[in-house]
C-alpha cells in the first residue's frame, strides 16, 4: 500500500506544477459549459423536449460537467507516450502492479479535478440559482454512482490506451474513444434523445455509467429501484473491465518492442 500511496502523492504534487495550464483549462471548460447552457436554454425555452425541462437540463449539464471532469487529467497521454516511446520499460522493473500503479496515480490527480468542479459548479449555481438535491436514498445512490465513475472511467481510458501496444499511435485511439464516449455516455445529449435502439445499446454499455447514470439519479428521472439497477451495471462493468484490462496488458507485453537505449 505504501508504494501506491507514494505514487498517488507524486501525481498529486506534480499536478501543482501545471497550475497555469489548469487555470487555462478551467477557463475553457467554463466557456464550454456556459455555451451549452445557453443553447439548451433557447431550445427548451418554450416547452420541454423528450421530457426534459430547462431547469432539469441545467442540472443535467452540471452533473455531466462534473462527471466529465473527473479523471480527465489522468495521464493517458503520458502513459501512451511511455508505451510508444519505450519508457514503459522502466515501469516494468518496478515492484508494483502496473494497472494498480496507474490507478493510484489517477486517484492522486483527483483532488485538483474536484477542486475545479467545485469552483465551476459553485460559480454557475451562484449565477443561475440553486438546485434541489434529491432525497436521502437517491442522494446516497448518486454519491455511489459518482464514486464508481472513477474506476470505470479510469478503466475505459486505461484499456483504450493499452491499444497503443497494437496501433503504435495514440491520437487515433484517443479520438475514437472520445467520440464513442461522448455519444454513448450521454455527455453530448441525454440518452433519451438518441434513437430507441441506440439508447438501449448505450444504456447497457459501460459508457452510460460515465454521465447518464449519475445524472438521471440526481434528477430523479429514475426511481431508486431502477437507479440501483443502473449502479449495479456500473459496478459490473468496473469488475469486468478491471480483469479484462489485465488480460490486455498481458497480451500487450508480448507485443512490446523497445528500441534503443
Amino acid at each position: 500500500m505504501r508504494a501506491y500511496r507514494a505514487l498517488a502523492r507524486a501525481t498529486a504534487r506534480s499536478a501543482l506544477t501545471y497550475r497555469l495550464n489548469l487555470l487555462l483549462g478551467l477557463g475553457t471548460v467554463f466557456v464550454q459549459l456556459v455555451a451549452l447552457l445557453a443553447v439548451w436554454r433557447v431550445i427548451l425555452a418554450q416547452s420541454s423536449v423528450n421530457g426534459f425541462t430547462w431547469p432539469q437540463m441545467r442540472v443535467y449539464l452540471l452533473v455531466a460537467f462534473a462527471a466529465g471532469t473527473v479523471v480527465s487529467a489522468f495521464g493517458d497521454f503520458r502513459m501512451a507516450f511511455r508505451i510508444l516511446d519505450g519508457d514503459v520499460a522502466l515501469d516494468l522493473v518496478k515492484p508494483v502492479d502496473y494497472q494498480k500503479a496507474r490507478f493510484a496515480e489517477t486517484i492522486g490527480g483527483l483532488w485538483i479535478e474536484v477542486l475545479l468542479i467545485g469552483v465551476v459548479v459553485g460559480v454557475t449555481l451562484a449565477v443561475t440559482g440553486g438546485v434541489r438535491t434529491p432525497a436521502g436514498p437517491a442522494l446516497a445512490l448518486f454519491v455511489v454512482s459518482m464514486l464508481l465513475l472513477v474506476p470505470l472511467k479510469f478503466l475505459i481510458v486505461y484499456g483504450s490506451t493499452l491499444l497503443c501496444f497494437w496501433t503504435q499511435n495514440f491520437i487515433g485511439v484517443q479520438w475514437a474513444r472520445l467520440a464513442v464516449m461522448n455519444l454513448l455516455s450521454g455527455a453530448l445529449i441525454p440518452l433519451a434523445y438518441l434513437p430507441g435502439w441506440l439508447a438501449t445499446v448505450a444504456q447497457w454499455s459501460p459508457f452510460a455509467g460515465l454521465t447518464s447514470t449519475p445524472a438521471l439519479i440526481f434528477l430523479g428521472r429514475v426511481d431508486v429501484r431502477h437507479g440501483l439497477t443502473l449502479v449495479a451495471v456500473q459496478l459490473g462493468w468496473v469488475l469486468l473491465l478491471w480483469f479484462g484490462a489485465r488480460l490486455m496488458w498481458r497480451a500487450g507485453l508480448r507485443r512490446l518492442t523497445v528500441n534503443g537505449g
Partner: peptide, 27 residues
Amino acid sequence: VLFGQRTQLWWDLPVRESLAVLRDLYG
C-alpha cells in the same frame, strides 16, 4: 536498471522527491 537514454525520475518533482517515491515503491 539504468538506461542512459531514459530517466526514471519524475519530471515534475525535485530529485529528492523522486528518490523518496522510489524509496516507498521499494519499501
